[in-house]
Design a protein around this nucleic acid. Structure first.
Lengths: 350, 350
DNA sequence: TTGTACGCGTTATCAG
DNA sequence: CTGATAACGCGTACAA
């Protein structure tokens, strides 16, 4: 009887192995843990054979109780069904699994209360580390996390307080790259539809747009800079505003993909061609730019790598190889799907 | 010292609470576990106060070791970055969290070896239950799982052997509904682009198409029934084949969204209008039908509910309320985004 | 109604 | 090199 559902499958313990091999539990433990403690090769073989014979696996719970470790790592995101996160989760899980850890997934909807609650739960569960995609710029939870001593890596979001490891995508560089592409194609009057100013990614993207103009010595026209809400409606509304005010532009840069889709829609229904007439650029966080019509050139974010790298960093932290806290910036990449100059780029939009 | 990273935050144990409240550990245990064992109201209050005062939380590891339970549930999917799964994960996690469980996420890429390996890991970890989205029709792992006594619920896939609880979306009904809609609009020559015959969902969808024709007394034309690969290319190729052979049709039903997109593309580049000329129907598993141009009417799968329901069923199973193994079929819903008769429907495509 | 003491399976310390 | 044994924190017979 092992307490599992009435089934009476007797799972072998370290003691079973010990008696089967005719040694003590201590020796078995030393063997299975590759302890630096010397153990006679012959004995080791005997033990190993018994382990295999009984198909013994150490009880993770007991190990955890003893070592204060659970061999599990949490990934906390606002919402896994937001298309920005699944690839991150996949990257993180792949690396975790390779290192013998399992991934615990938590959704917070970006609600600070739920974020805090989850962090509490994880502490209770002796999670060995946390990958945290916070929603807001609020860093109090991080402080708490830090204080509790659980290694943590922040992903996809920037936080003012620099005392925590971070892995994110370079919004600034991405948008600079996208805007430069339009400029190289000859566009000079490029409208910008940004995101909410409260989000650092939105601010960074705008900065990238501005820098690109500067690079090409094009004076920025404030009347072409408007902002949306990272949703389709925002893009639609922004274009309508621009057209009502009779602004002239030959291209549009949108702060994310949904905004770009809204913009394209509004442009089209106003009778302007895409992309013969107007080039649209967005910053996409949803991997479906290829299926939009017309298919959009995309500055894709390396979300899988982001997850994988963050996990690797976290593991390093857990091994105490964390000499100093780092801030890792991944570069998004321009994926040209058509030559005419319409794009999408990507970033979390919640 | 609690073994966590050298931090010396002393986490209170049940003994701390006991001494703080001036009672024995047994009493504390009885209180925090709402044991049926009688305990004096006054004593209970004292204990509760101490618990709160010290912010005591039972050590999950120790509980687990003692009770053979981990308060965690695994969700095993082929690939979380396949857009069909994130909403399922979200639904499952929401329900799990409400019941005090955490969700462990695993990706198998549909590889039987990896599926098996993961199931092994989970057994070792004393996971309390498993939500399993197998890739193939292979049910050996399920047998193994079943044999190990871990409660399990199969999701999104059908499996021949009926001895396991299953929650899935009714592919047959969905496709019948979609096809009927086209028939009601007056279409009679409706091409069908199916999925790989090895997948039961593909077979079910074809069956739904056929039934709809029968419902309307339209004799099925075998030359209009072709098959794809659940990818964009398959849809494209299928349409080209049909047109090369000069088949006449006024509508297309595709077995999934990507196929439908390919079909639309091929139709358009052949100079046929969408949807004025041809109505396209797919079965979509990727929630972006709204962003395709023209936006597609969709028979959407209730993936969130699928995850939530499966988790609820699993919890019932774990509470041994599983009188008999059940097979729960969720109905997909037609979401009409345009009146003209172009659609997408959804299902897992891996 | 409350308390004592054992065991869950491991690991680490200390003697041999 | 090996073995006995004391924790780790909790739940629960059993005794009081």
């Amino acid at each position: 009887m092992n307490g599992r559902n009435g089934r009476t499958v007797s799972i072998p313990t370290i003691r079973d192995v010990a008696s089967h091999a005719g040694v003590s539990v201590a020796t078995v433990s030393r063997v299975v843990n590759n302890s630096l403690h010397k153990v006679h090769p012959a004995t080791r073989q005997r033990v190993l054979r018994s382990v295999h014979r009984l198909s013994y696996h150490p009880n993770v719970m007991a190990q955890g109780l003893r070592r204060g470790t659970s061999h599990s790592i949490a990934l906390i995101v606002p919402d896994i069904s937001n298309p920005f996160y699944p690839a991150i989760a996949r990257g993180a899980e792949d690396v975790a699994r390779q290192h013998g850890y399992v991934l615990v997934l938590g959704n917070t909807d970006g609600d600070p209360g739920r974020e805090r609650a989850y962090l509490d739960i994880l502490r209770k569960r002796w999670v060995d580390g946390v990958l945290f995609a916070s929603a807001g710029g609020d860093d109090r939870h991080l402080r708490a996390l830090r204080a509790s001593g659980v290694p943590a890596v922040l992903i996809a979001r920037d936080v003012a307080a620099g005392a925590v490891d971070t892995v994110l995508v370079d919004s600034y560089a991405g948008m600079r790259q996208a805007t430069s592409h339009l400029l190289r194609l000859g566009h000079r009057r490029i409208a910008y539809i940004g995101g909410p100013h409260s989000l650092s990614v939105a601010r960074e993207r705008l900065r990238g747009y501005r820098q690109a103009l500067r690079d090409f010595s094009v004076p920025p026209d404030p009347s072409l800079i408007t902002s949306g809400d990272f949703r389709v409606d925002g893009g639609r509304a922004a274009i309508r505003r621009l057209m009502e005010r009779r602004r002239l532009f030959t291209a549009v840069v949108a702060a994310n993909d949904l905004t770009a889709i809204g913009a394209m829609e509004a442009l089209r229904s106003a009778g302007r061609g895409i992309p013969d007439d107007v080039a649209v650029v967005g910053f996409d966080d949803i991997p479906f730019a290829a299926f939009v019509d017309p298919p959009l050139t995309t500055v894709a974010q390396p979300t899988y790598r982001l997850g994988a790298l963050a996990m690797e960093r976290l593991l390093a932290l857990m091994r105490e190889e964390a000499a100093t806290t780092r801030r890792i910036m991944l570069q998004p990449q321009l994926v040209v799907r058509r030559s005419c100059g319409a794009y999408l780029l990507a970033g979390p939009t919640s």
